[in-house]
Design a binder for these strands. Structure first.
Lengths: 120, 120
DNA sequence: ATTATAATTAGAATAATTCTAAAAACAGAG
DNA sequence: CTCTGTTTTTAGAATTATTCTAATTATAAT
């Protein structure tokens, strides 16, 4: 594992924001000012391929990257904010039903986050 | 509802392919040779806003558009092929648990489609 | 130290999508 | 009908996210 890959992986694992490549790039720059956006993209791609992080493709905005630990996502339909949520009881069943053939799954639940709900 | 919006909506509702804007554009062109890609994008956006179709954002490829009828998706992790699937028993529970606050949800199950599995 | 291999950089290239301004189509009032 | 205002469509430039290519730098192995 390369230098930058290691730091990027830590950034993702330590934060519970769901950062885009660009946001990770800015974080990374704080300690590694020489790094370049393409490097972040490259490393994110290899980390995904190696199955060390998870890519979340979002409607209407750039992909976000997340730790592996299994969980689902609540996504605000209005502002796009993402938060973690576990629908364990349900997804346990899901996994059982799906069986071996399944590689993974992605459950996104869309709602209006508290802030956006007030604005209405 | 405008002329092209109507045809696009029909194309989506009549097919069970999960077409990208570009694929829809080529379909549309068969009967409406003058239409332009931007028009397809515009109409897809308004159809989505009006809640008449559903946008599926896919990992690593362009958004696909789908009819409203509630169902889930099986996505081949390798070639990206999308097919419909209903995990009704599970998602009924999901909806019950989620309750009022929820706008919608999106469940994608990743697997290896029969073709890709053979290739291995 | 020398060479081979892999990682990073810089920046051009690409793909998907949006934006802008002009042209065309349509709809209603006279 | 014909004029006028509004909406839709068009053409193409612009933008955003991402990938690619080639050169450079760093790392590891001999």
């Amino acid at each position: 594992m390369t230098k930058y890959a290691k730091i990027i992986l830590e950034l993702i694992n330590q934060s519970d924001r769901h950062m885009t490549a660009e946001q990770l790039f800015f974080e990374l720059k704080k300690t590694e000012p020489k790094v370049v956006l393409a490097t972040v993209y490259n490393n994110l791609n290899t980390l995904c391929q190696e199955g060390l992080i998870r890519r979340l493709s979002m409607e209407g905005s750039a992909d976000r990257f997340d730790k592996l630990k299994k969980h689902d996502h609540l996504v605000c339909k209005k502002c796009g904010a993402v938060s973690d949520q576990s629908f364990e009881d349900l997804t346990k069943d899901l996994e059982k039903q799906l069986g071996e053939a399944i590689v993974s799954y992605d459950l996104k639940v869309y709602y209006l986050c508290p802030e956006c709900r007030e604005e209405r």
